[in-house]
């Protein structure tokens, strides 16, 4: 084969392979197509899930639950008593909320949520878990050294505040109800929803601004 032909073949080879999906992408494509043929999944359902969780859902639902708890004492009482039933009132049950338990931050308690085994997370409320939540570093250190992890996120917890660490499982998942920021007395539920950050509901944020737009 001449040099010219070698170059041409290499170019064609590159051209062909440049649009070949990565190995994991190929495997997922293979899995999905087989599951669709077996009637176990529907392509539209998968596409809709991906679209919703990539862009739409995020932590907005969880933020609304928190804001409602801040403004409606009766709802807060129901949320603390039975989280699953309370979020059902807002039609948020589903997609891995499992049994939901709300845990409240106070002046003397700070709550932090982790899944030490894998990445269990109430994603119907909070969207897909952030990447750090899924790391081995967070999963192990959140239990061993929660104050150190919180410092890494810029949250310094005074020695007289107790840090409680909750381990999410497939059956039971936690939602941190942060303290309502000072200076927000005049805000309604919708405005308050915009203040609550995703990390505050996991516990890696504690004092957030009364003017921030947390869930965007």
């Amino acid at each position: 084969m001449s040099n010219y032909d070698s170059a041409k073949v290499a170019k064609i080879h590159h051209h062909l392979h440049s649009h070949l999906p990565s190995e994991p992408a190929l495997r997922v494509k293979a899995l999905e197509s087989l599951l669709v043929e077996k009637g176990l999944v529907n392509s539209q359902t998968i596409d809709a899930w991906v679209e919703a969780y990539s862009e739409e859902i995020g932590p907005k639902r969880g933020a609304r639950v928190v804001a409602k708890a801040w403004t409606d004492p009766a709802f807060k009482a129901r949320l603390m008593d039975d989280g699953t039933a309370a979020i059902d009132e807002l039609d948020f049950v589903g997609n891995a909320t499992a049994h939901l338990k709300a845990v409240e931050n106070t002046g003397s308690v700070h709550n932090l949520v982790v899944c030490t085994l894998c990445s269990c997370y109430p994603f119907a409320l909070l969207g897909v878990a952030p990447n750090w939540y899924k790391t081995a570093a967070y999963r192990s250190r959140a239990v061993r050294d929660p104050r150190g992890v919180l410092q890494e996120f810029g949250v310094n917890i005074a020695d007289d505040i107790e840090v409680r660490v909750w381990d999410n499982t497939a059956e039971l998942r936690y939602l941190v109800v942060p303290q309502r920021p000072a200076g927000t007395e005049g805000l309604d539920e919708e405005a308050l929803t915009g203040l609550v950050t995703r990390n505050a509901m996991i516990g890696t944020d504690r004092k957030f601004s009364a003017t921030a737009t947390g869930t965007s």
Partner: peptide, 23 residues
């Protein structure tokens, strides 16, 4: 340190990652 740095990362870098969780 990398934990905090990962805070702003998009949750999915590639489509197949989202599809795995969806399936």
């Amino acid at each position: 340190k990398p934990l905090k740095k990962m805070d702003a990362e998009p949750v999915f870098e590639e489509l197949w990652q989202a599809q795995v969780l969806a399936i």
